[in-house]
């Protein structure tokens, strides 16, 4: 499971970084999306990988914490997903405005040879 997850994070971030460095705004936003997926998976994995372990403990009595998953990274990843989703949506709007005003989808607002 560790290998699969780390491969997924690695592939996502590698493609994300490559796309982020491309000159077209659509590539940049796709890259940012992929990167944020990679980061979210990474945050999740920081709570250690467990299978079938609930994150919430029952009330009262003594419980063995090792049989439960760490709930904090799950809460963090939820916040991170919401925030990155919202900011990416906002970036999309700016991207569209830039396309409309400059007539090109280059990140600098003009083609490289101009």
């Amino acid at each position: 499971m560790e290998i699969v997850l780390s491969l997924a994070i690695g592939v996502l971030s590698a493609s994300g970084i490559w796309l982020l460095l491309r000159p077209r705004t659509f590539q940049v936003i796709t890259g940012l999306c992929l990167l944020s997926y990679a980061v979210n998976l990474f945050i999740f994995s920081m709570g250690r990988l467990t299978v079938g372990a609930p994150p919430i403990m029952p009330k009262g009595g003594w419980v063995d914490p090792t049989t439960y998953a760490d709930p904090l990274p799950q809460a963090l990843v939820l916040t991170a997903i919401v925030i990155s989703f919202a900011t990416t949506a906002l970036f999309l709007v700016v991207m569209m405005a830039s396309r409309g005003m400059t007539g090109t989808d280059h990140v600098d607002g003009r083609e490289a040879d101009q």
Binding site: L20, V28, L32, L35, M46, L72, F91, V94, V107, G109
Partner: peptide
Amino acid sequence: PARVRGGLHYIAVNLAASLLFLLGVSLIYG
């Protein structure tokens, strides 16, 4: 146009920086 162009760079750079921020925070938590 000038603001949209400057804003585009500003947002892209800061979004990427925020992702670095998250990576750092989660590593420290881990």
